[in-house]
Simulated assay, not measured.
Amino acid sequence: MSVTNERDQALSILDLNLNKLSKLYKECYLSMGKGGLLVYAQDVLEKKIPNEDNYRTKEELLEVFDSPSSQTNLVEMVDNYDPKKQGILTLITSYSNATFFVTVNLK
Results as ranks from 00 to 15, higher is better:
53 D>H: 13
56 R>M: 15
65 F>K: 02
54 N>P: 02
63 E>G: 05
55 Y>W: 00
57 T>V: 10
70 S>N: 09
64 V>T: 10
52 E>K: 15
56 R>S: 10
75 V>I: 13
63 E>Y: 03
59 E>Y: 08
52 E>Y: 03
69 S>R: 11
52 E>L: 05
58 K>L: 04
78 V>E: 04
69 S>C: 04
72 T>E: 11
53 D>K: 15
78 V>N: 02
81 Y>I: 08
54 N>Y: 02
58 K>A: 04
87 G>S: 15
62 L>S: 05
71 Q>C: 00
86 Q>W: 12
70 S>T: 12
72 T>D: 00
79 D>M: 08
80 N>K: 06
89 L>A: 10
58 K>D: 01
83 P>E: 07
86 Q>I: 06
79 D>S: 13
75 V>P: 00
66 D>C: 14
73 N>R: 09
74 L>S: 03
87 G>L: 14
70 S>G: 14
82 D>F: 07
61 L>C: 07
56 R>L: 12
64 V>N: 09
77 M>V: 07
79 D>R: 15
68 P>H: 06
86 Q>E: 12
60 E>A: 11
75 V>C: 06
54 N>E: 09
80 N>V: 11
84 K>N: 11
76 E>D: 08
72 T>G: 05
53 D>A: 09
62 L>A: 04
86 Q>Y: 03
58 K>R: 12
75 V>D: 01
86 Q>T: 09
73 N>W: 01
77 M>S: 08
84 K>F: 01
68 P>I: 02
80 N>C: 06
78 V>Q: 03
72 T>K: 10
53 D>W: 11
73 N>E: 07
67 S>K: 11
66 D>R: 15
87 G>N: 08
88 I>G: 02
69 S>E: 13
59 E>P: 03
54 N>C: 07
57 T>P: 11
81 Y>Q: 10
73 N>C: 04
63 E>Q: 10
74 L>M: 03
70 S>R: 14
89 L>Y: 09
79 D>H: 15
54 N>L: 04
74 L>K: 01
77 M>F: 02
89 L>F: 07
78 V>Y: 03
70 S>M: 11
79 D>Q: 09
70 S>F: 07
55 Y>K: 14
69 S>Q: 10
87 G>M: 15
56 R>D: 02
72 T>H: 11
87 G>T: 11
52 E>W: 08
87 G>Q: 13
78 V>M: 11
59 E>C: 07
74 L>I: 10
74 L>E: 00
57 T>H: 07
64 V>Q: 08
82 D>Q: 10
